[in-house]
Every structure is written in structure tokens, then in C-alpha cells.
Simulated scan of single mutants.
Amino acid sequence: MYCLQCLLPVLLIPKPTNPALMETHLMFIVLYLVGFFLERKPCTICSLVFLTAVSLICYSGVGNCIFWGNCEGHQCENG
């Protein structure tokens, strides 16, 4: 479970309030996770725990997910 020390702080990175910065935030998160998984090769248990945590956070509400911004209702407006 040592590899979770670098994965769990990703869940605590605050999302930007400016919608124009959401694409940059998403790109940073995705590139960090891809680089982490390629470089560190975390164990299967840590990977499953992290992916379960991300899926539960994203499932709990549309505005809570680290991969997309705050949306009013269930539809996001582009722009």
C-alpha cells in the first residue's frame, strides 16, 4: 500500500473555478496519472483502491468528479 501515498493526493487537488482552466486541469491530472502508472507501476491492489475511490467520487455527484467541472443539473454547457 506504499504506492497509494502518491496517488491519494491527486484526489485532493482542487478544481479551478474558472471554466477556461478545466481543460488544463484535466490534461494535468491525466498526464500525471499516466506518467505515474508507467513509471512507478503500482501494485494491483493500490490501483484497484484508487480507481474505486475515483469511481465512487465521480458517481456520487457530477460536480464532485476530478475529471470534469461543476455542472448545473446533469448537462454541462461548453464555452
Rank of each mutant, 00 (worst) to 15 (best):
G35N: 15
C6S: 06
F36M: 00
I57T: 10
G73Q: 10
S60D: 06
L31C: 08
L38M: 12
F37W: 13
E77L: 09
V10D: 01
A20M: 13
G35F: 06
P9G: 01
F28T: 11
L21C: 13
C71H: 14
L31T: 13
F50H: 06
N70H: 12
F67H: 13
L31M: 12
N70T: 11
C6A: 09
P9L: 02
I66C: 05
F28K: 13
I57E: 08
T17S: 11
P9H: 01
F28C: 10
L31H: 10
F36R: 00
C46G: 07
L31G: 03
Y59H: 07
N18A: 15
C3R: 07
L12Q: 14
P16L: 08
P19I: 14
L11Q: 04
V34N: 06
T44M: 13
V62C: 05
I45L: 08
M27H: 09
Y32H: 01
L11C: 05
C76H: 11
Q75T: 10
R40W: 01
P42H: 09
V34P: 00
I13Q: 02
L8E: 04
T17V: 09
Y2K: 03
S55H: 05
F36I: 00
A20W: 07
L48D: 10
V49P: 03
L33Y: 02
V30I: 15
K15H: 10
A53V: 03
N18V: 13
P14Q: 09
G73C: 11
T24P: 02
L56H: 06
F50A: 06
F37P: 03
E39I: 08
V30H: 14
T17R: 11
V62T: 06
Y32P: 00
G69S: 14
F50M: 12
G63K: 02
P42E: 05
I57K: 11
E39P: 00
L56Y: 09
F36V: 00
F67N: 12
C58M: 06
R40K: 13
P16G: 11
P9Y: 01
T44F: 12
K15D: 06
P42Y: 05
E23N: 15
W68L: 12
G35M: 08
V10T: 07
V10R: 02
T44H: 12
N64G: 09
V54H: 04
P19S: 15
V49E: 11
P16Q: 11
Y2T: 02
P19N: 14
T52I: 06
S60M: 04
T44C: 12
E39V: 09
P16R: 12
R40Y: 03
A53F: 02
G35S: 15
L38N: 12
P14Y: 03
Q5C: 05
T52E: 03
L12R: 14
I57F: 03
C6V: 00
C6F: 02
S60T: 03
Y2P: 00
I29W: 00
E39T: 13
P19W: 14
F50P: 05
V54Q: 08
T24H: 11
L38F: 10
I66V: 14
G73D: 13
L56Q: 10
K41W: 01
A53M: 07
V54W: 04
V54D: 07
